[in-house]
């Protein structure tokens, strides 16, 4: 039990953290419920892969060196010792596999893109308004998200996304502004940004991210769950910083 650490989340942050902690001599188990988080999504789309290439390559290298168990950690309880309980595998969600006891838990479950209100998008709510995260994932699944896309926001990642859409033959417009009003009843028809009108049938927005910890897991938080960004330099910085406490 001594020196056993459970890392929740097998994405970039979780695997990076696990690797550092292993080097420090801890016995680390990473619990990953799906496919490894957004770094694997970035890896599957050329423009994003290129943009995140250092982190993608780092991730797949480190993946070979850490112990990963498939499962969704639902609860962390503390009774003198720290227990990882309720770890379910995909198909048998009622089955509780006990991987033993852990001294500490590190939560690396990442973040999610905030809602349209946080990006100051008002007006109607027709179909065709997507967070950047969901737009990327839907495209990766092979779906067409629209034809004329207004990309709303001013983060660097949006330019990368824009070039990807360009290659995929979408018509795009990158616009940043203080306030956007969506028009359209069933589907987006037009967006007015700071008084200027843009005809489009899709809005992809990015303003900020929120920490993703739906089960409110208790533990040390590290990575994008703290950094809340698309800038993985900051994500790596956070992982390194938190790891210093171990």
């Amino acid at each position: 039990m001594d020196g056993r650490i459970a890392v929740v989340g097998g994405g970039y942050s979780g695997v990076r953290m696990a690797s550092i902690l292993s080097e420090k001599g801890y016995d680390v188990v990473v619990f990953e419920g799906r496919d490894g988080g957004e770094i694997t999504v970035f890896n599957s789309l050329p423009e994003l892969r290129e943009h995140y290439i250092d982190y993608v390559e780092e991730y797949f290298e480190l993946l070979k060196t850490v112990r990963i168990e498939k499962g969704v950690v639902r609860k962390v309880t503390r009774e003198n010792l720290v227990l990882v309980s309720g770890c379910y595998t995909d198909r048998d969600s009622r089955d509780c596999s006990n991987y033993g006891r852990f001294e500490q838990v590190v939560v690396c479950t990442g973040c999610y893109d905030s809602n349209p209100i946080s990006a100051n998008i008002y007006g109607m709510r027709p179909a065709g308004i997507f967070s950047l995260e969901n737009a990327i994932r839907l495209i990766l699944k092979g779906y067409r998200i629209g034809r004329e896309v207004l990309i709303f926001g001013d983060d660097a990642i949006l330019e990368v996304f824009n070039s990807m859409l360009g290659r995929m033959k979408y018509s795009t417009h990158v616009v940043s502004g203080e306030y956007a009003v969506v028009r359209g009843r069933e589907r987006v028809e037009e967006v007015v940004v700071d008084g200027e009108r843009f005809r489009c049938d899709t809005v992809v927005y990015f303003k900020k991210r929120e920490c993703f910890n739906p089960f409110n897991l208790k533990g040390v938080k590290a990575g994008n769950i703290n950094a809340k960004t698309y800038d993985y330099k900051e994500v790596k910085k956070d992982v390194l910083k938190v790891s210093e406490d171990f």
Binding site: Y112, P126, G128, N134, R137, E186
Partner: peptide, 29 residues
């Protein structure tokens, strides 16, 4: 948080359904 949206969309597509938000022509993808 809406992180589950892409998977739900995929579910509907795999069931042969149009993926609509609410109205008749509110196709999402």
């Amino acid at each position: 948080c809406k992180k589950c949206l892409p998977e739900i969309v995929e579910f509907m597509v795999n069931m042969g359904l149009r993926v609509r938000k609410d109205y008749s022509n509110s196709d999402v993808v």
